[in-house]
Design a protein around this nucleic acid. Structure first.
Lengths: 143, 143
DNA sequence: TCACTCTTTTGAATGATTCACGATAACTGC
DNA sequence: GCAGTTATCGTGAATCATTCAAAAGAGTGA
């Protein structure tokens, strides 16, 4: 659907295939989807493909820097279209929902600090665990 | 070996068993051990037990708040004895070594910030990915 | 269009973890 | 110390996500 995705793949030296475009399309609409969710979304849109192929594509795109992979605790790996800012994630410990947390400051808030001496930080993965707005309300009402 | 561990278990309403004490003992000496490492350490010290039992114990202790579980990307879950401060971790992307990163400030540096509106943060998991001191040197020398 | 190479597909396999259930050992009260 | 109750352990099988290998298929440049 989006010509930009074609360029994106070409830039990274990847061949432009239907499968890859489809995966990118799915992830544009469903951020934080795991492999199975992508697979199901593809199946729903008529492109039945195997789960292994989805893993394959996701792995390729992640390796090429087009996607970012992150693994919430106790949950399969999730993928998202990489945005330049390295934002973080808030995972609801109740419903499992993942929300993006943008850095209000330009740089990642935790990158500058506290790394062990000699440790060359490449990236910082910050995950907040807690209750999302919905579950906070539900919890409060239930209690 | 340590009477404190006995009390620790009692406080949490857990039965004091040899297996649990042994696991706590192993984790006291090997922080950031994964289930398999714990299993092997137990086997070395003469207590041959099954991997499943180790998972069982680790799960129980984690649930009771005695241990903290965290999952570096692409690596099995690791466990550590919970300390009150919520420190963070630095994972070497080359050798896989995990180092603790203490918060220099009393509170977690990232807890206060940026959470989505309505999101009740329970804990923040901060993982630095990069090259440890050894691998930085090795890398520099190799390059 | 042709040939070459990268991708996908298919099937099986691996690794970490969990489940179920009988056997065992730890806590309680006597 | 002893028996009863029940949590816990151990064994086995099973699950889930992911990876690997080889052959068929599709994209790319000439």
């Amino acid at each position: 659907m989006n010509g930009t995705d074609v360029e994106l793949l070409r830039e990274r030296g990847l061949r432009v295939t239907q499968g890859r475009l489809a995966v990118l399309d799915v992830l544009a609409r469903m951020p934080h989807a795991d492999a199975e969710a992508v697979h199901r979304a593809l199946a729903d849109s008529g492109r039945g493909t195997s789960v292994q192929s989805v893993h394959n594509v996701l792995g390729d795109l992640t390796g090429a820097g087009v996607l970012r992979r992150f693994e919430p605790e106790r949950s399969p790996a999730r993928y998202e279209r990489r945005i330049d800012d390295n934002h973080h994630h808030a995972v609801c410990s109740r419903c499992g929902k993942v929300e993006d947390v943008d850095c209000v400051v330009g740089e990642a808030p935790c990158l500058h600090a506290d790394a062990p001496p000699g440790f060359a930080v490449q990236s910082a993965d910050v995950t907040f665990v807690g209750l999302c707005a919905d579950c906070t309300g539900a919890d409060g009402a239930a209690a």
